[in-house]
Design a protein around this nucleic acid. Sequence first.
DNA 1: CTGGTGACGGAAT
DNA 2: GATTCCGCCACCA
Length: 105
Amino acid sequence: MVKKMDNRFVYEVLEVVGEIPRGKVATYGQIASLVGRPKNARLVGKILSQVELFGDYPCHRVVNASGRLVPGWLEQKELLETEGILFKSPTNISLREYQWNPEVD
DNA sequence: CTGGTGACGGAAT
DNA sequence: GATTCCGCCACCA
C-alpha cells in the first residue's frame, strides 16, 4: 500500500488539483487552504511529488507562491505552453495573470 | 530522542 | 525584487 499519510487529506488535495481548469494554475498554499489546512503547503508538494502513484492528475498546473515551476521537471513548461500559458522566464510564469480563482471558474 | 530535508509560505527587513 | 527567519509536517539517519 502506498497510503501512509492521512488519506482524507490526500484525497481532497487530488480532488482540488483535478478541478484546476486548463490554462490556469494553482499554488501549493492555495490548495492547502482549499482543503482546510492552510499551513500544510509542504505536504501538498510531498503528495504531488508522488502523484503518479495515485492516478492521473494535472499536477503540472501547480506552482509555488512565486510562480516558479517545479525545479528539474522539464516537461512541465511544455505542458503549460500547450495550454496557452506564456512565460516570464524559462522557470517562471505570471501568477497575476494565470492563477486559478475557484469563485469565478 | 535530535537534527536535517523538502514540488512551501508569510512576515519583516 | 532579494534575504533571512520561522512555522508547518512527514520521513529518515
